[in-house]
Design a protein around this nucleic acid. Sequence first.
DNA 1: GTCTATAATTTGATAGAC
DNA 2: GTCTATCAAATTATAGAC
Lengths: 202, 202
Amino acid sequence: MEKKLIETQENILAAARTIFAKKGLAGARMQEIADAAGINKALLHYYYRSKEKLFEQVFEEAFKKLVGPLAAFLADDSELFLKIRNICTLYHKVMAEYPFIPNFIINEASTDPSRILKLLNIVGIEEGKKKTAMQISEAIETGKIRPIDPRELILNIISLSIFPFASRPISEQFLYKGEDMDEVLKSRANRVSEFIIQSIQI
Amino acid sequence: MEKKLIETQENILAAARTIFAKKGLAGARMQEIADAAGINKALLHYYYRSKEKLFEQVFEEAFKKLVGPLAAFLADDSELFLKIRNICTLYHKVMAEYPFIPNFIINEASTDPSRILKLLNIVGIEEGKKKTAMQISEAIETGKIRPIDPRELILNIISLSIFPFASRPISEQFLYKGEDMDEVLKSRANRVSEFIIQSIQI
DNA sequence: GTCTATAATTTGATAGAC
DNA sequence: GTCTATCAAATTATAGAC
């Protein structure tokens, strides 16, 4: 019995991830989720009392996937350039698998900002942030890299790693029409980290 | 009478822009739009037959705001580095005024991909694209910049210009908590273009 | 746990008076 | 053009049998 319960629950979550990601909280239909999970609405409500409850679980999962790599980067003790290569590789790997997550999170976050505030504390980041900011400042002082605000460098890394995936529905039409953008994005991680390092290296 | 008609219409559009941008097509409520426009639902339907019709107008406007700067960049006849500075400045100006547009467009585009296809032809871009790609290739051959795929350079420029605005609801919490991110973004255009030029310049 | 049937609400849209 | 009142459809949620 427990076996079946868990299996059904996983079916529901898998269906909910796909449909919430594509249509958002407001656009998703419980009926559609039930269909995709191979059950009916009543049973869906039996497992998750409300649409809101189901959504919260999916949202939290996705949020961790999005912020996890950043936390890992900030906490990483490697040398700066290696760290940059690491986060680019990691984000490109995660985004290739879940390209819809950035929009999903950003969107629902602007619809209801309180959603993020609840999750902020779950993902510890402050300590790593200080450490990495210090590391960057040190690299500047010792003349290893050009002067740049540490937060800005981090923001640039994230922008270059995430936006191409998030914007794919549009940018594919404009820049890579008829070509294999999958292939482009797959091999992009290395080029991005070199693009960044070239910019800051003295 | 014409005066009033146009004024009401503009009130409706202003309300619709805000609410559609924040909540999306599915999440927006006609009642809420009517309230924000200072009229009632019946009158709202009198001006725009359906929610879908109203949405289409708002979407098309926003789409042009997002893609316009790119088209201008591609068609620009200036020297390459100046062009890069121009598009960064332009995008930062537009995004400061309409920071919600990127998510809005990307989101509705993935919900219903056909929406973009309809608009693609409105914004002529192919000619400029070829010209700029050629210009970049030439800069590489003459040893002015390092080798890079022209499309990738363009994508990097756009990513660095747009993502920080789009992701603000989240990144503000992580990177600039308690600070004035408005100020940061306002002055960012110059730093971004220099970041890019530093990276490609030999 | 799983289903069918149905209640309860929300919401886009229209009718009709002024 | 603008309003009040109301309809019709869609959708979340629950009751109750098996």
